[in-house]
């Protein structure tokens, strides 16, 4: 890949249109409302799931797209997610960790922490299932925030353990192949 290709790839956001005709959203909204009249529970479930996904999206894309301030403000107002910035912290930490690697022979020991991460993700799935069944409720929001706090703590732990392993790997190399931990 030459510099030109790399440059285009890195700046592809600049190729996006400045604005989109408002009628596109209006058509989407009309269609959703039309469907929601047919099935109110569909609307509630979809809305709830979209809310959860939006939080997750900010988690994954927050740092890439820098969502507009007004979206953030509205989210905070609607769902009282005053602490939703945790999601962005998680995103940053996951990105940071995805670039790190450890010697292959240490991977097995590391599974304990990775399983805990899976446990937390499973727990999150339980929350989204609850929202799908019962709609978004504040206490689930609080549990989601607690979930993020736990996740941040765990990711910090994983990071410090990787640093520890690599500190000793530099001192006394094991000659074991380096592998990514795949978070």
């Amino acid at each position: 890949m030459n510099k030109f290709e790399k440059y285009i790839q890195e700046n592809k956001q600049k190729l996006e249109p400045d604005q989109i005709d408002a009628k596109v959203w209006l058509s989407i909204e009309n269609e959703i409302l039309r469907k929601s009249k047919k099935s109110y529970s569909f609307f509630i479930k979809t809305l709830a799931a979209a809310a959860v996904i939006l939080v997750g999206t900010l988690l994954m894309y927050g740092s890439l797209f820098k969502p507009k301030q007004d979206i953030e403000a509205r989210l905070i107002e609607r769902y009282n997610l005053g602490e939703y910035k945790f999601t962005q912290q998680v995103s940053l930490k996951e990105k940071e960790l995805s670039t790190l690697s450890i010697p292959k022979d240490k991977l097995a020991d590391f599974q304990i922490l990775l399983q805990q991460l899976e446990f937390l993700n499973g727990q999150f799935q339980d929350y989204t299932d609850y929202i799908e069944q019962n709609g978004y409720q504040e206490f689930i929001g609080n549990q989601i925030i607690n979930h993020y706090k736990s996740k941040i703590k765990l990711l910090d732990k994983i990071q410090s353990e990787i640093e520890k392993i690599n500190y000793y790997e530099n001192k006394i190399p094991s000659n074991s192949e380096k592998v990514e931990i795949n978070i």
Binding site: V24, I28, A50, I53, P67
Partner: peptide, 18 residues
Amino acid sequence: MVAMRSLYETFSKEMMAT
């Protein structure tokens, strides 16, 4: 609807460009 709208606002430009 706010959440859906927010998702739309977050992704629409990129999707439109694509």
